[in-house]
Structures are given as structure tokens and as C-alpha cells.
Design a protein around this nucleic acid. Structure first.
Length: 479
RNA sequence: CGGGGCGUAGCGCAGCCUGGUAGCGCGCCUGCCUUGGGCGCAGGAGGUCUGGAGUUCAAAUCUCCACGCCCCGACCA
């Protein structure tokens, strides 16, 4: 750690991100290019994400299972747009047990095919439907350009795969999971995402319709933070997932898939972080509060630590995730900076003066310096902390929403549009033509992020071609 | 895959141009001292200079060939 300070976000956002991930000990580079070691602090954050999502999946009737890592290559080839989309980024196993394999095996880039194969065996009757399965796993996609959490060769995620009797049911499921992701992002991660529909060009390989939640990062760029696909009958037909309906007629199922990955950790970093480091939303933070004891003499140490431990227990009993920093030989000032860099939402400082007064200092991570510090009585500390955490959670959301709003322009013409996508989102009328979309991308490097579910109504002129348009879309440079 | 940058101690770098067998800061270890915003002092450990081949009496340094990583583009959760 030659340099104690991070690069600032304004001077080099990318470098700020890279260094922060390493310094906060979220992740490290692996020996293989593009692969990532998720360190305990990063994994703890991911575990809180998975717990919050898994709760929601179970609450909407889904169950977990585990499908294999290796897939026969022929499976990938069964759905033609799927193979076209994924072929360039497949890792293929050609040898096993020292022998060349008869048929190469693909390391799953996603599991629609192998799950489709299983569903074809399991589903016979309308009575077997719907099938609502999720799995937590990792997948491999041979990406050309990688970045910790945002795009790694192997990434961790969940992939939900469901099969339904009707098109309507599948669409309802697809939209329900989009809502689940939206709710999770907003209420757990304090990220004001925009749920919407993807254009044909941005659609998942093999989907009829792709929905996503889009978030704005601290540099104004967009990040797709979760996706939900309506696969229609494409995979059902490729894998012969069929059932007999009530009338005894053989029908193809309607399937969906939806996923959210460790990329979301990157979103949390880039949405909330500041020049001091991470700011983690309290509901997901591995540690919600760090206690820094302060003392000089041995007597002070004894009383302060005794008091600090009592507070820790009280807070832990109230359900607060507490980290007690008892590291020796490190100054309090160092610890303050350290926990700020690591994004702990609340810090509790406790010195001899506080012990004498029966109070503590609470410092809010989202308000740097003295402004964020307050003396709080030890009496009723748990309630005070819980309240502070809730306030911080809300403040982070409000701030992110304000940032997004102030970096989003309702661009009416192409000049405004070009200016808007330099620093944020353009929300503009779009005729829906792939040509306009492609030309915009070519000329501005901004892509169609989504057509938000929430529309102003009415109609306007396409920001590129000027033709009549009935929907407005978000365009932005994206990760 | 195109363009750029870089591989020297755990991390960040200097040394290379002009060959002479390796240094600085941080971190780490020990001791003392300190602790309310990134303490200080003293002592110490730690390096096949990415790999290979070549030139030379002599290569971190010059030449060639590999490999790896990072950044910027095209592709993507």
C-alpha cells in the first residue's frame, strides 16, 4: 500500500474502481487471465445478496436445485440463435482421463439447454406445470475484456428456469422476476434501477423478450444489473419439452429464465462509493457497524474494552452485524480510514471520555468528517443504531436517485441526445427501428439500455430519424 | 482480435539510454514509545530482476523469441 489514497473518481474512475476492489479486499486477480478470487469480505457481501434474493425466490414459489457444469456440445447447438450467441465465448473440454473425448463438452455459459433436456424428461402433463427451479452456481464465458466483478471469465450467479402451460403464464413469470429484481435492488442495495424491455439487438440469445434492470453508475454509465427472459417456445421446441393438456392434446411448454450475478457487487461499488472508498448499503453490508476502542493506559484499555464488548453484545443481540476492531498497535485514525475505505456504514468510537459520560460517538459513512459524527447515549444504543442504519439506507437510495435524475436528459433532438450520453442517460422517443439503434451506437457509442416499463404516455418523434414513435427509451454508454 | 502500456522484494516503483552482479518508499518481523483522523524511533528479514536463446571477459541493462498482466476499442451478465 505505497499510496494511502485512492485515485479520485473524477480523475480516473476505472482506476479508482480497480484499486478499491483490491484494497478493500473484496477480490483479487487469479492466475488465469480474467478470473477472479472472491475474498472473504467480498463473498460476505455476495452472501447477503444471495440471501436477500433467495428469500424472494422462495416467497414466489421457487425451489433450488443443482445441474451439472459440463454440457454436451450438441446441446448448445440445438437452439439456433442460442448457439449463434454463445459459440464465440465457450470454453470447451476436449480431453478427459487422458483420452480425447468422442464429443467435446462445453463448460456451461448458462444452463437453458441442460435444464431443457431435464424438463423434457420430467414434464408429461399439465399437472406437472409450472416447474419453478432456480440454481446458484458459476458459469464460464470467454470474454475478451474483463474487469473484476463486472465481467470475469467465470462468474457466480443464480439462474432461474421455469416452464409453463401458457404464453400468458410465462410472460407473467418473466415480469414477476423483473419485479423481484427491482424490489431487491431498490430496497436491499439502495440502487434506483429502471426496469424495462430490451431491444431485439440487445436480447438474450434464444429469447423472445428480454427485460432488465438498468442502473446508473457514479460516472454516468449504465450497468445491466439483472435480466429476465421470456423464452417463448424456442427452447421447448429445441428440447421437446411437451405436456398433454386437459383435452389430451400434446403442447409445447413456454419457458423463462432469469439471472443476477456477482456483477451486482460491482454495481454497489460504483453506485455508492466515494473518493474515500466503498459505501455499503446497511442491509447488505457484511459489517453494519465497526467499533473502534480508544485508550492510552492499561487501565483505560481495560475499562474501554470492557465497555466496548458489552456494547457489541447488546448490538449483536439486537441483530446488528458488528465488527469489533481490537487490532493492537494501530492508531484509531488509521482504523477510521480503514473502515471508511471498506464501506462500513456506521462506526462507533469509544474512548475513556465516552465511557465516563456513558455515551459513544457514532460516525456515519455517508456523511464524511465531523458533520456525520454524533454523541449518542449508551442507554438505548441498539435502537439508535438501528435507526441510523435505516436512515443511511434511505439516504443512499435518495442520493443515487438524485444523481441519476440530474444525469438524465429528456433529449428531444439528436444534438441534445449526443450531449446527454456524454455524461449520463438520454431518455428519448425511439421509433423502435434497429437501424436507428445501430446508427446511434455507431455514432455515439451509446446503446439502447431499455424501454422503461414506466412510460410517459402519448407519442413523439424518434430522436434519430424523426418518425413517429410511441415509446421512450433509455440510451447510454454502458459497461 | 486491433491499438497502447508494463513485467525488478508482499505492494508501488527507480536502476536499463551510456553493460561491471540491485536500490527506494510502503508493508512485514523485534523492541521501545504512542493511540480522539492514515504516530515516531531503532534494529531486522525478504529478490532465480517473467521465461528462453543470443552477443560479451561480464547482462536487470544490448538483440531475438515466447509468455503474462493492465488500459483503450469491437463483443458481452
Amino acid at each position: 500500500m505505497a499510496d494511502m489514497k485512492l485515485p479520485t473518481r473524477s480523475e480516473d474512475f476505472s482506476e479508482w474502481y480497480n484499486q478499491l476492489v483490491l484494497r478493500a479486499e473484496l477480490a483479487d486477480y487469479a492466475p488465469v487471465r480474467g478470473c477472479m478470487i472472491v475474498r472473504p469480505y467480498g463473498w460476505a457481501l455476495w452472501e447477503n445478496i444471495t440471501a436477500a434474493l433467495d428469500r424472494r425466490f422462495k416467497a414466489t414459489g421457487h425451489v433450488n436445485a443443482a445441474f451439472p457444469l459440463l454440457i454436451p456440445r450438441s446441446f448448445i447447438e440445438k437452439e439456433k440463435s442460442h448457439v449463434a450467441g454463445f459459440s464465440p465465448e465457450l470454453a470447451v473440454v476436449t480431453h478427459g482421463g487422458g483420452e480425447k473425448l468422442e464429443e467435446p463438452l462445453v463448460i456451461r455459459p448458462t444452463s437453458e439447454t441442460i435444464i431443457g433436456h431435464a424438463y423434457a424428461k420430467w414434464i408429461q402433463s399439465y399437472r406437472d406445470l409450472p416447474v419453478l427451479i432456480n440454481q446458484w452456481n458459476s458459469v464460464v464465458r470467454w470474454e475478451l475484456r474483463t474487469k473484476l466483478f463486472l465481467r470475469t471469465l467465470e462468474f457466480f450467479w443464480q439462474e432461474g428456469h421455469t416452464a409453463h402451460a401458457t404464453a400468458e403464464e410465462a410472460e407473467t413469470e418473466t415480469r414477476q422476476m423483473l419485479d423481484v429484481y427491482t424490489d431487491f435492488a431498490r430496497n436491499e442495495a439502495a440502487i434506483p434501477v429502471i426496469p424495462g424491455r430490451k431491444s431485439a439487438a440487445e436480447r438474450f440469445a434464444g429469447a423472445n423478450e428480454t427485460y432488465s434492470i438498468e442502473a446508473m453508475m457514479g460516472d454516468g454509465k449504465a450497468l445491466q444489473a439483472g435480466t429476465s427472459h421470456n423464452l417463448g417456445q424456442n427452447f421447448a421446441k429445441a428440447f421437446e419439452i411437451q405436456y398433454l393438456d386437459k383435452g389430451g392434446v400434446l403442447q409445447f411448454c413456454w419457458t423463462t429464465s432469469w439471472g443476477l450475478s456477482t456483477r451486482f457487487v460491482g454495481a454497489i461499488i460504483m453506485v455508492h462509493g466515494d473518493d474515500q472508498g466503498l459505501i455499503l448499503p446497511p442491509r447488505l453490508a457484511p459489517y453494519q457497524l465497526a467499533i473502534v476502542p480508544i485508550f492510552k493506559t492499561d487501565e483505560e484499555k481495560a475499562t474501554v474494552l470492557e465497555n466496548a464488548r458489552r456494547l457489541r453484545r447488546e448490538l449483536a443481540d439486537a441483530g446488528v452485524r458488528v465488527k469489533m476492531d481490537e487490532r493492537e498497535g494501530i492508531s484509531p485514525g488509521f482504523k477510521f480510514n480503514d473502515w471508511e475505505m471498506r464501506g462500513v456504514p456506521l462506526r462507533l468510537e469509544l474512548g475513556p471520555k465516552d465511557v465516563a459520560k456513558g455515551s459513544v460517538v457514532l460516525a456515519r459513512r455517508d456523511r464524511p468528517g465531523k458533520e456525520g459524527k454524533a454523541f449518542v447515549a449508551q442507554q438505548g444504543i441498539a435502537a439508535a443504531v438501528t435507526e441510523h442504519l435505516a436512515e443511511i439506507q434511505q439516504a443512499l437510495f435518495d442520493r443515487a436517485l438524485e444523481f441519476r435524475k440530474s444525469h438524465t436528459a429528456d433529449a428531444e433532438n439528436y444534438e441534445e441526445f449526443k450531449k446527454a450520453v456524454e455524461s449520463g442517460f438520454a431518455f428519448s422517443w425511439w421509433c423502435g427501428s434497429g437501424d436507428c439503434e445501430a446508427k446511434i451506437k455507431e455514432e455515439t457509442r451509446a446503446t439502447m439500455r431499455c424501454i422503461p416499463i414506466e412510460q410517459p404516455g402519448g407519442s413523439g418523434k424518434c430522436v434519430y430519424c424523426g418518425n413517429q414513435a410511441s415509446e421512450k427509451a433509455i440510451f447510454a454508454k454502458a459497461y
